[in-house]
Each structure stands twice: as C-alpha cells, then as structure tokens.
Simulated scan of single mutants.
Amino acid sequence: MKNIFSKEVTEGVVARIEDLTSQTQPIWGKMSVAQMLAHCCVTYEMVYTDKHPRPNAFTRFMMKTLIKNIVTSEKLYVKNGRTAKQFVITDSKNFETEKKRLIDFITKTQQLGEPEFEGKESHSFGKLTAKEWNNLFYKHVDHHLRQFGV
C-alpha cells in the first residue's frame, strides 16, 4: 500500500484529483464526480471536525469487530460495496468546492505526518496504528479515483 504520509504519494494523489473535471463520469457506481469528492471528504471530516456524531459504544464495538479489518487492511475494496450512511451523498455538490476540500484534507494529513496518527483514536474503530490510518486514507481515495478513471 502506498504511504499517503509521503509527500511524493500525496502529490501523486493530488495530481490524480486535478485530472478530474466536473464532467468526469464514473466507470462504475451512481455518484457524480462532485458527490464522490464529498464522499471522500467524510473520512477526513471524522478526523478533523465534529460534523458526524460518534457512534454509540455498541455500534463502535460491532464496527471494530466486523468492519475495521476491511477498512484498515491492504486488501482493496470491491466495486459497488456497501457504505455507512454518513458516507452516502445524495444531494448535489459543487465540484470545485469539494475538490479543494479533499485536496486540503489530504495535504493536511500528509503535513501532520505518521507520528500524529500513531495510536490516534478513530471515530469508529478505536486506536489505530499509523499504518492502519494510512491504509484507511489511501485505499479509500485510490478506490474512488480508480472509479473515475484517474
């Protein structure tokens, strides 16, 4: 798995995002490109904002038991997989706004670096290693950039 905390990898991801246009169509799935960018921002909103309420203890236990390894392992996501409700984006979004937000989140994460994320508490999965955070961040955005052919 590429290391999103690496400046070179971050620059590559940002370049892929810059290759998108407001008219880019998905290879699979239903989201528009602007919705996809907003969807990818949710991961970072859970780290950097209070926009999404933290799940209750039972839900966190279930997510840690059933979902954590899917999200934090190096195994790629399947196409058209299920997602949590807070990641479902159905309203229209502004492409340029969402693109800038995602690039800013990715850049901020890279600048904070691995030490910031080693042992950092996840919104849903408890404490994660920097490697688990990397896999969570990189795998998700890579999956959706491949969805849109970049």
Rank of each mutant, 00 (worst) to 15 (best):
S73R: 07
S6G: 07
N69S: 08
T97P: 00
Q110W: 10
K64I: 07
V9W: 08
F87N: 12
V141N: 10
K51V: 11
M1R: 12
K93Y: 00
V78H: 14
P53Q: 14
H52Y: 15
F105H: 13
F105T: 04
A130K: 06
T83Q: 10
Q110P: 02
K85A: 08
I17C: 05
K68P: 07
M46G: 03
V13L: 12
A38D: 00
I89Y: 02
V88L: 03
Q35F: 00
W133A: 01
L145A: 04
K99E: 13
S32A: 03
K139R: 15
A15N: 04
A57I: 14
E11C: 06
V13Q: 04
K85C: 09
L112F: 12
K79C: 03
E8M: 07
P26W: 07
Y138L: 09
I67S: 09
K7R: 15
G149Y: 07
R54G: 07
A57D: 06
S122Y: 02
V42H: 03
A130E: 00
I67L: 14
M36A: 02
E11D: 11
S124R: 05
K30Y: 01
E18G: 02
L37F: 01
V88D: 05
V13M: 08
N3P: 05
T10R: 14
L112H: 08
D50L: 13
P55S: 10
K75F: 07
S22Q: 11
K93C: 00
I89P: 00
N80H: 08
A130T: 00
L145D: 05
K2R: 13
H52C: 09
M63Y: 13
Y48L: 11
K139Q: 12
T72N: 06
L112I: 06
K108E: 13
N69G: 08
R82W: 14
D104K: 11
S6K: 10
I27Q: 13
H144W: 12
S32T: 04
S122T: 09
